[in-house]
């Protein structure tokens, strides 16, 4: 039996002040468990990604030189759209069942919990998509170097996309009709990531160095990690306030 866990613990002074790591872990683990119990959320963005990419050759023609040329843009735009599709559910379920209120009122700083949630979301929706991207790269006639650049740029860039779209999702979670609105809010903010992501892949396809582009993507990632959780937390507070 826990020492002070019963209502005898009316005086919460006995409870240790919470550590940030505990809140972060709790959020991350819970969201991963929930995601694995509801597998459709896990696989749908992945299938979407694969299907969108498979439709391009059907729309444009199977010419290897054309496909090679558009491949970086196609993979990146498909990744961007599937992030956008999955992000609407990021806070929606928690908002509907009330656990978002509990998170907001808990002694943990909200931005730490938000960070845990987004990392879980990225692991579940974006990582599988990155892992299949080499296969799709082969289907679009990319060479080994280009595929490597695609992998690296997606690894660095998609977390930034998740963070940006989470800002949109946080601001619209109180609204019934969030979907398209999140897209309109987030898409213009995706531009730098899209430019340097495709830039890296394009440079690799022309056998040029792409380290610079990756470094800039890395800088975006650091900026996003440092600032986006605060914007998201502020957005959630506003959405729950109304």
């Amino acid at each position: 039996m826990g020492t002070e866990l019963n209502p005898a613990a009316v005086n919460p002074a006995v409870v240790k002040p919470p550590s940030m790591a505990q809140g972060f872990n709790a959020m991350l683990r819970r969201d991963l468990v929930v995601a694995f119990r509801q597998r459709s959320d896990l696989v749908n963005p992945l299938f979407f990604f694969i299907m969108v990419i498979a439709l391009f050759p059907l729309g444009i023609g199977p010419e290897p030189s054309t496909l090679q040329k558009i491949a970086p843009g196609v993979i990146w735009i498909a990744a961007l759209l599937s992030t956008l599709l999955s992000v609407d559910s990021l806070f929606r379920q928690d908002f509907d069942d009330g656990s978002l209120e509990l998170a907001l009122l808990s002694p943990q700083p909200l931005f730490v919990l938000v960070l845990g949630k987004i990392i879980a979301h990225w692991l579940v929706t974006a990582l599988p998509l990155i892992l299949v991207s080499p296969v799709l790269g082969v289907m679009l006639y990319m060479d080994a170097d280009t595929i490597q650049a695609t992998l690296c740029s997606l690894l660095l860039g998609t977390p930034v996309l998740s963070m940006i779209s989470a800002i949109g999702a946080a601001l619209t979670v109180g609204l019934r009709k969030g979907g398209v609105l999140v897209a309109i809010i987030a898409l213009p903010l995706y531009v730098p990531v899209l430019i340097f992501g495709t830039g890296a892949v394009e440079a690799a396809s022309m056998s040029m160095a792409f380290g610079g582009q990756l470094a800039i993507l890395g800088a975006f990632l650091i900026l996003a990690l440092a600032f986006a959780p605060f914007a998201i937390a502020a957005g959630l507070r506003i959405s729950l306030n109304g």
Partner: peptide
């Protein structure tokens, strides 16, 4: 855990 309850593992489970 969000509330910062310090107990872990078995103690938390029994509670």
């Amino acid at each position: 855990q969000l509330k910062g309850v310090g107990e872990r593992g078995p103690a938390l489970d029994t509670a």
